[in-house]
């Protein structure tokens, strides 16, 4: 549900909604929601001073029952 919710929230605010993909990855330190967006949209989802990214994290964290959820924002094709 969290992936879907995050995808919905991000798709609504970017210029290239079809390029938004969210994947849940299990890393050693816990789950990560990995959001990939069109390179032109990365600035938008981060926002000035990171405030849009923070807003996404606040909403998703609350939907997750206030568990800590890590969200990574990346460009499509970016290797990590």
């Amino acid at each position: 549900m969290l992936e879907e919710a995050l995808e919905h929230l991000v798709r609504g605010i970017v210029a290239h909604p079809d390029d938004v993909h969210v994947a849940s990855r299990v890393l050693r330190r816990g789950n990560v929601l990995e959001v990939r967006v069109h390179p032109d949209d990365l600035g938008k989802v981060i926002g000035r001073g990171g405030r849009t990214a923070r807003a996404l994290r606040t909403v998703i964290g609350s939907l997750a029952g206030n568990r800590h959820v890590r969200i990574d924002l990346l460009e499509t094709g970016e290797v990590r």
């Binding site: 949209d41 990365l42 600035g43 981060i46 926002g47 990171g50 849009t52 990214a53 923070r54 800590h68």
Partner: peptide
Amino acid sequence: MSIPDETVGDERGEGFGTMVSTESAEDT
């Protein structure tokens, strides 16, 4: 928000990794 986690608080943006530097002033 009351996420019971040590990373919340002074470093709330931490989870977003290092990509913040790519922020485009133009976009925002």
